[in-house]
Design a protein around this nucleic acid. Sequence first.
DNA 1: GTAAGTGCAAATGATTTGCAGATGT
DNA 2: ACATCTGCAAATCATTTGCACTTAC
Lengths: 145, 145
Amino acid sequence: MAVISRLESVLGELRARGGRVTTPRRAILQALIDHADHPTAAQLTTRVQALLPDVHESTVYRFLEDLEGLGVIDHVHLGHGPAVYHFVDDAHHHLVCESCDAVIEVPNQMFETLRRRLHTEFGFALKPRHFAVPGQCQNCAAARR
Amino acid sequence: MAVISRLESVLGELRARGGRVTTPRRAILQALIDHADHPTAAQLTTRVQALLPDVHESTVYRFLEDLEGLGVIDHVHLGHGPAVYHFVDDAHHHLVCESCDAVIEVPNQMFETLRRRLHTEFGFALKPRHFAVPGQCQNCAAARR
DNA sequence: GTAAGTGCAAATGATTTGCAGATGT
DNA sequence: ACATCTGCAAATCATTTGCACTTAC
């Protein structure tokens, strides 16, 4: 049986929903897949433009929005800068250091107790996706700042 | 013995650090105290301008920054809009509904277990201040959206 | 052929900054 | 007097939108 790449699988889903597969979209999605960590729209644009110089940032934003609607990706605001994007199935949360901007990834499971309590006590459904937890990392805390 | 209001206490601290107490600053701080919930810079500006129409938004932003430096207030980004400001001693966190933007306040103590685990396992010091937890509130979850 | 997608330029919203004049200490 | 604040206008940064043209289906 054929193995379908993430790229083709998402594009298939897109097409199934009446969307169109274009050269810019292919490149944006590929950039998203290639970018191991958490790229911003600007970073993706730069990467795409290495191949297709005319692709505009607005096209990237629009397609990212579409992918979000498709439930394929999500975006988070870590710290103060621009939002970062990630695939939804890549489930973990982020500890963001307010002193040095370091980002520490922690597994979702770490939030399991909290998730359960929020649900039983407040009926609140914690999204099983990234969210930013502000604080101070070990180094910065040690450095007393 | 005299009871010193929050207003005077903060202004005293400000003066002690070489800052100057001006009419706009007094009004901004008062607006912050009067605003029970979590005002944005724009809301504070509007409130201040009711009394002092010439106070500019940039003055508000600059003073809020100063107050943050003084450790008196903090700001959080709930959802997507502008940042909201709050006194640091008013310790609680926020559940933000992604469907209806409702904000539910939960006591810090709810995060105690998480805080401890993050500290022992990652050396990460969760800030004892507001942070935004994205998810879906009871109503919206029930409404299947 | 037609609706959906694209590039471009211009609008938006939040926040920041440079500067010359006003004000607190 | 002197540094700090202030108002104002303009800059910046991330993101969105309107529109005429192009392209996938």
